[in-house]
Design a protein around this nucleic acid. Structure first.
Lengths: 196, 196
DNA sequence: TAACAATGTAAGCAACGCATACAATGTGGT
DNA sequence: ACCACATTGTATGCGTTGCTTACATTGTTA
């Protein structure tokens, strides 16, 4: 029977992992620093060393979410085919997969955005996501598969489609099958809209 | 100096009004039943007569939001022109106006949806919204301004666009002007996608 | 006018976030 | 090897919260 060491070892990441679990299962409102501390086997005040406030923990969680999402999207673009259609489909599908697989986290990520005192890192993370979309459009234009025009304006419909698709997927009311149809339809629709 | 009457008179709607105020200014997390009771000048336990839990109050708020939104959209469609393009533009713009004018409320409305125990009234309210979109598509098809096809599949891109547009508007990062451009671009994009 | 439902109050519980003061542990400079 | 010091944990307590139970007041209606 070994006594628990005075120092946890890696409380910070332990808290983040635990927090994501309860976030996923019970939502951000149910998240309690004290409960997290209990689960980690540590005193109620211990988490404050790593996260000054509860909001700080949520921000850290959101930031991690953005990193995971952009990583997934980067990977998808890297292994997708060359045509605009293929890349678009890949992007949409991995974005949607992340969204449906991390509902609560995504809510947190975007919910935090329109708060005046969101971390600078957070807004930077969302910027990188936006760039991903414009890059895709740009490459499509170079290949002559997307009608010409200023990228920052051309990319809006794409972002609209991505956001809208996930929003629709998250608000539910769709069977797995309807959703898959919807994705295909929307991709086709978007392609038609971008056609030269 | 008249004594405050034992009964408030209309505590329920007073609570709803007050709640929407603090929701708008400080978000749903900052909402406190006790504080609401204080502002309404009643005892801390009084609100429980009308809203068993805090969540019940939020649900009521969300429901009210859906009613206001659908009313606004109905009005918009009623006074819009006859062509599909006009009706689409009207719908998009009033939807967006509501979204930007009631950020927190809209978050509440859609945030509550993917909770297993959301009110039946709530899901019904979202259904009516969906119908609005399909009606628009259908009328467009009758006029020969929208390519034919099964309505429930054809309407998906429209809903995607509406949801995406508001999502984008809410997450910010756009000036008023960019947003307006984005709306126009997206409307044009959608029209092109639906063109026969 | 007496029974009854609706609506309010009073009081108290357990849990929460957070601040402050203190204890144990690791670390780097001499 | 030692010792100042930052880091990371604990102990304790304050004020607030949501919610429950028991009781008081009022409006309605039979």
């Amino acid at each position: 029977m070994k006594a628990r060491p005075y120092h946890h070892g890696d409380l910070r990441s332990a808290l983040l992992t635990l927090a994501e679990g309860t976030l996923r299962e019970r939502g951000p409102a149910e998240l309690s620093l004290r409960e997290l501390a209990r689960e980690a086997g540590v005193s109620p005040a211990a988490p404050s060393r790593h996260f000054k406030t509860k909001q700080a923990l949520l921000d850290a969680l959101a930031l991690e979410g953005f990193q995971r999402l952009t990583a997934a999207l980067d990977a998808s673009l890297a292994q997708a085919g060359d045509t605009f259609a293929q890349r678009l489909a890949g992007l949409a599908r991995t974005y949607l997969a992340f969204a449906t697989g991390n509902t609560a986290l995504l809510d947190l990520m975007y919910g935090r955005k329109h708060d005046p005192d969101a971390t600078a890192e957070l807004v930077a993370a969302t910027e990188r996501l936006k760039n991903l979309a414009t890059d895709l459009i740009e490459s499509g234009q170079r290949r002559g598969e997307v009608r010409p025009g200023p990228v920052d304006r051309q990319s809006v419909p794409l972002m609209v489609a991505l956001q809208g698709l996930t929003a629709l997927a998250l608000t539910g009311g769709f069977t797995e099958e309807q959703l898959d149809e919807g994705v295909s339809d929307t991709i086709a629709f978007v392609l038609r809209g971008y056609a030269p």
